[in-house]
Amino acid sequence: MMQLQYFLIVAAALFCIGIYGLVTSRNAIRVLMSIELLLNSVNLNLMAFSNFLDPQGIRGQVFTVFVITIAAAEAAVGLAIVLSIYRNRDTVDMEQFNLLKW
């Protein structure tokens, strides 16, 4: 069972990197990428659990497929919004988005 923990540690590390990126990035695209990192750490978690604890049901793997799909949808919407904001404002720098009091 040692192996499961390695997976979990990697996933947790990935999650932390994602959070770090989320907090520090100024570029909206980088923020989106950080979110993808978070979701991938979740996927790793789910796959690991699915393999070690639920090899018959493989619910985790199914879950992962859903997560990947929805992450794609989310990224598509996110990029669309970034695109339209770029058209209006000519920038994707988070610091510049201050029309609304943050």
Binding site: S34, S41, V42, N45
Partner: peptide
């Protein structure tokens, strides 16, 4: 929309991480 999306996606990723732990 951008603010909502970024914060929302991040929070649902965090939620999902909790869910994955619960699953495990």
């Amino acid at each position: 929309a951008l603010k909502y999306l970024l914060i929302g996606a991040a929070s649902s990723a965090i939620f999902l991480y909790g869910v994955s732990l619960l699953y495990g």
